[in-house]
């Protein structure tokens, strides 16, 4: 049996407007998890994993140099960002639950922001909740947050994926990140 050819998948689904991400998700989800697991076993404890670096590694492994099409790369990264979000959230949820025994999340105090306050897993969960909220009112901006934050995508890549100008991406992103920060901080 053949390995699923991601490039072909991208091309195949690129024609069926927007479904690429959905179809790619399970594939990428599995691949990213596998990559993370393999990396950790290889590099032992003490080494750290950057999620966005992992996404890039997945691209190189699954598609690599064989496909230099920007549109494909953008679709791929969009799907990979969403996969990475799910992976991190699942992991954070598990950890956070163990720690808090299921209590609610505590919002961040804006004044403590620079002190790296709060546990990272809680922060991730807060951000995820905020993104979910944003998805209801403005799904495009929510998508941009996922791509920027979880996938480390450039404005150019996002613009390519969404079919808008880079300037528009920059504008949405500026607004969305401010909105996001407000959403995760305590009322003053």
């Amino acid at each position: 049996m053949l390995e699923p050819d991601v490039t072909l998948l991208l091309q195949f689904l690129g024609k069926d407007d927007g479904r690429a991400s959905n179809e790619l998700l399970p594939l990428l989800y599995a691949e990213l998890r596998r990559l993370a697991g393999a990396r950790m076993r290889r590099e032992k404890a003490g080494h750290t994993l950057q999620p966005t670096a992992l996404v890039h590694e997945a691209w190189m492994r699954m598609v690599g140099e064989t496909d230099r099409t920007w549109a494909n790369r953008a679709h791929f990264f969009a799907a990979a960002s969403e996969s990475m979000r799910r992976i991190l959230i699942e992991s954070a949820r598990r950890k956070s639950r163990i720690k808090r025994g299921g209590g609610g999340l505590v919002k961040i105090n804006l004044d403590d922001l620079d002190l790296a306050a709060g546990e990272v897993d809680d922060n991730i969960l807060l951000i995820d909740e905020a993104i979910e909220e944003l998805e209801k009112s403005d799904p495009e901006k929510a998508g941009i947050v996922v791509m920027k934050f979880f996938g480390g995508m450039t404005n150019q890549e996002i613009a390519q994926h969404l079919g808008v100008t880079e300037r528009t991406v920059e504008r949405h992103w500026a607004y969305a990140r401010a909105w996001l920060l407000r959403a995760v901080t305590k009322e003053q």
Binding site: A36, E90, V120, F149, A178, T185
Partner: peptide
Amino acid sequence: FEPKAQRFLDGVMGKVKDSHLLEEIPD
């Protein structure tokens, strides 16, 4: 919020790196 937003998000992602979030993914 705008001036702090990017720094905040960068900070969280930086911490993900040092956390064990990705290490504890069941394979």
